[in-house]
Simulated scan of single mutants.
Amino acid sequence: MHPDVTADLESLDATLTTVEKVLDLEELRRRIDELEMQASDPDLWNDQDHAQKVTSELSHAQSELRKVSELRQRLEDLPVLYELADAEEGDDKVAALADADGERESLRTDIQAMEVKTMLAGEYDSRDAVVNIRSGAGGVDAADWAQMLMRMYIRWAEQKGYGVEVYDTSYAEEAGLKSATFAVKAPYMYGTLSVEQGTHRLVRISPFDNQSRRQTSFAEVEVLPVVETTDHIDVDENDIKVDVYRSSGPGGQSVNTTDSAVRLTHIPTGIVVTCQNEKSQLQNKASAMRVLQAKLLDRKRQEERAELDALKGDGGSSWGNQMRSYVLHPYQMVKDLRTGVEDNNPTSVLDGELDKFIEAGIRWRMATAEA
């Protein structure tokens, strides 16, 4: 093998070894055995929420172990590929070397993606995520943009096999969404998606403008960790105003004949949460309460962070504001304003190809925290 290839394989081995140490494969295997025992308990599904948590954590742990084991096997196979390529001659040798180089680059990408996951060590990073999307400046284009963003995140989640539960969709009059709230249910979703929080900007020829003028519109993405019982977020029923109404679809049309949609107003803070996607008023109220608790937890965290920032005298962090531009006209580009990562294929990004932006965001966040 060429010395440069040997040095590169040694570098990849060092990175993968670090990943294996951080994941603690021995502990991961022990945890899988423990979860498999819990999952085989016939009484597990008596508590559906607990059962889903156990099976989700088990699936995630098995997937992590399988991925890192496959990466190790691929790394061990690479020198063999180069040896076989060296044994060839002429065009066959060129083709075999190209295949080996291609596998090396693919392996580098996959090891780096695994390395990023080991950076999710924040207090709430391992939680499910609640995502709120709100249309901003830009009128009907902004409402349409909010709906495009919701589709982008849901496609990203579904492509990876993550569960998605839509709590609320508030439709705009002409097209698109005023707001939407949904949960992405898989371990480490909050840590992963929290780097997507901020203002997303779209530039395109407006499909709603009969003069086909260029329009800039904005939507806001908020990402919250799902609240667990250990968080001690207690909500006094006397502090909540509950309103019920009929669920509405696009154009304001009623989509059912009973008052099943629920709006919760938390009187002390003024936080308002709505949920209308479940069949019963009771289910909608329970879902709305989960979102309200997540918002109250986030408010508590922000207050604690503000106190720490005041003590540090650094004025706090504003990285979550302007964060990404999606330009469809006069040229095609998606650019992250924090990391500088670009993609010249907005269609694929809007279809859920977000990994490189998310991975770069996690690395950027870690570097910023260490600075």
Rank of each mutant, 00 (worst) to 15 (best):
F182D: 12
G136A: 05
V164M: 05
E173D: 15
W319F: 08
E27P: 15
K93Q: 13
T6P: 00
A183M: 02
F182P: 11
S280H: 05
L193T: 07
H60C: 09
G315H: 11
P268M: 01
S40V: 11
E222V: 11
V262W: 03
A137I: 06
G251Q: 04
S59G: 14
T257E: 14
T229P: 09
N256T: 09
A288K: 00
A100I: 01
D309C: 07
D47E: 11
E278H: 12
Q302L: 10
E237A: 15
V184P: 10
P250G: 07
S170Y: 14
D298W: 12
D33Y: 08
E105M: 07
S260L: 00
E27N: 15
M150T: 10
L35E: 05
Q253H: 11
V184N: 05
N277L: 06
R263D: 12
R30Q: 14
D33A: 09
R299H: 15
N344V: 09
Y167C: 09
A51K: 02
V226K: 03
I111E: 00
G176Q: 01
T169Y: 12
L71K: 00
Q253L: 05
L296V: 06
Q276Y: 10
R290M: 10
V349I: 07
R66N: 13
T118N: 04
T15V: 15
W45Q: 07
T257G: 15
T265C: 02
E173K: 03
Q112E: 15
N238Y: 06
R31D: 15
D43A: 08
I267N: 04
D168T: 03
G249K: 06
R305A: 15
V68I: 12
R246S: 14
D343Q: 04
V80Y: 03
G163T: 09
E27D: 11
E57T: 14
D231S: 05
Y326H: 08
D13H: 07
L44I: 10
A219F: 02
G90T: 11
Q281L: 00
Y188N: 12
L177Y: 09
A143I: 02
I233T: 05
T169Q: 13
V54W: 05
P79V: 03
A261L: 01
T199Y: 02
D141E: 10
R134G: 11
I32C: 02
D209F: 01
L28A: 09
L16A: 03
Y124L: 10
M289G: 13
T15Y: 00
E105L: 06
G313Y: 06
Q322Y: 03
E76F: 02
P330V: 06
